[in-house]
Design a binder for these strands. Structure first.
Lengths: 261, 261
DNA sequence: GCGTTTTGTGACGATCCGAGTCAACTACCG
DNA sequence: CGGTAGTTGACTCGGATCGTCACAAAACGC
């Protein structure tokens, strides 16, 4: 007999652990769902949790409201319904996140302007996208965006569209003729370029300039798992901005642009 | 100088820890929110995290997308906005809870009928209320509910009202004349009794009987923090049900009932 | 320049918690 | 009375986090 308890069993256990249950507790709860109810010995056999530890684990589950206990001899354990369990977690985390929002908001606010001197590094596709959206959201006059298509996600397009509605000039580069059509539908005001320049496909990421005073450049690092790493800077005299703006601006002025029909 | 960093600081740190950050990481992120940005030394002074450990902790934060780093000397760290951080958590937990719902649903379903032999124990006000609602939700012909008023919460009333709509007979006891009015408004079909008997106020909890085959009794244990503990049983021949049904039924038949006007 | 301070990195022991094992105590049954 | 099963508590182990230190590299003051 292999250890195999089926994909779903393992998945369920892992997810329950992510939500804060211990491994034993998670294994036992899932096993109980399948059993309907069971004694310590039955549980131990199925979950291969040491029988003598079933009691502690189940006690923890009971305290969190996931298991009922029948004080017979032997004790019998019964799980609450799946719906109850998930609702439990839902409530729990909604609460803590709400609390967190409140307490963080109550902290002394710092001025949000990033007239920073340094060059900042962000890693992780999500984190980079966040930063890009943040910048686009604060744009007042102009956004220049160039990236491989794979990074031109829906939320970016949405952000750009919102900016366009605020009368921010949008300049998009690196777009293939195919997707250009779609973009023009979503953001008719946008001006699209084929590409500002050819960058090596292997590490191509994005290049974003906002109001000519905030610039972000990213590459797709290829060490095993593909991740995105970006640097960004902000401010009239920020060194990264000064250097890249020069190149960037020159390119824009000399780029082949599509003519909107 | 006291260690005091203000209530909110401590609260925020605790909540971030609940959501999976280490203590160091949490302290540092909050401190950075207040600072706007800061070096390892500044952070160490404020948070009293050992300076040499700020680097590891911040690296972890960076990997999860909560902090940007400026690779100058000294390094400078910058937190993402509160909104970004909370959204991060929100997404994360919404995902895992969705996944959990799916995998739990995919598990072999067990018959939900609890024609059980044992007497089950539930502890915790929330858990008890859940069980009560579950039973009421499954009621087909009759629900008898008696409790101290403090335990007759809105969701219970709602559940009873829903049952009444399904043509389940509702019998409510232990209701003061005052709240009886409200109940009659919410559940006009309900029959209300003053009380089935006087129980000692100190430990009074609830008493629920559904379809004369599932019974739950609870007491409010008073060891320091007030908690609710209940036992329940189900099934025609369940011992708890057999015993209590006799008493219960007799009382109902002889109780002083209010006359609906 | 040159010595001092600051900054960054790595390593180390202490502590805590959960995982896993074991011995002992209790209750039931023949 | 002995055997079996149920239950509890104590113990070791391993990993993660906390807290401290030593040391090299870089920055700074004079």
């Amino acid at each position: 007999m292999s250890e195999g308890r089926g994909e779903t069993y393992v998945d369920a256990v892992e997810r329950l652990q992510k939500l804060g249950l211990t491994e034993y507790a998670a294994r036992i709860y899932v096993a109980l769902l399948q059993l309907g109810s069971g004694t310590a010995r039955e549980i131990a056999e199925i979950t291969s949790v040491p029988r003598t530890r079933v009691y502690d684990a189940v006690e923890a589950l009971q305290e969190r409201g996931f298991v009922d206990v029948s004080y017979a001899s032997p004790k019998v354990f019964r799980p609450v319904s799946r719906e109850t369990a998930t609702r439990q977690f839902q409530l729990e985390y909604d609460d803590t996140i709400d609390e967190l929002t409140d307490t963080l908001a109550a902290l002394e606010p710092t001025d949000t302007t990033h007239e920073q001197t340094g060059v900042w590094t962000v890693s992780g596709r999500e984190a980079v996208a966040d930063r890009v959206l943040e910048f686009i959201g604060e744009a007042e006059t102009e956004v220049v965006y160039m990236s491989v298509e794979q990074l031109l996600t829906d939320d970016i397009i949405q952000g750009l569209a919102a900016a366009a509605d605020r009368d921010v000039a949008i300049q998009l580069a690196g777009i293939s003729a195919a997707t250009r059509r779609e973009i023009e539908a979503a953001i008719p005001e946008a001006e699209t370029f084929e590409t500002l320049w050819e960058w090596s496909d292997t590490t191509a990421g994005r290049l974003v300039m906002v109001d000519r005073e905030t610039i972000l450049v990213s590459v797709l690092t290829n060490e095993e798992s593909p991740a995105e790493t970006a640097v960004w800077g902000s401010g009239e005299h920020n060194s990264l901005v000064v250097v890249l703006k020069a190149v960037f601006t020159w390119r824009i002025n000399h780029a082949d642009r599509f003519e909107n029909e």
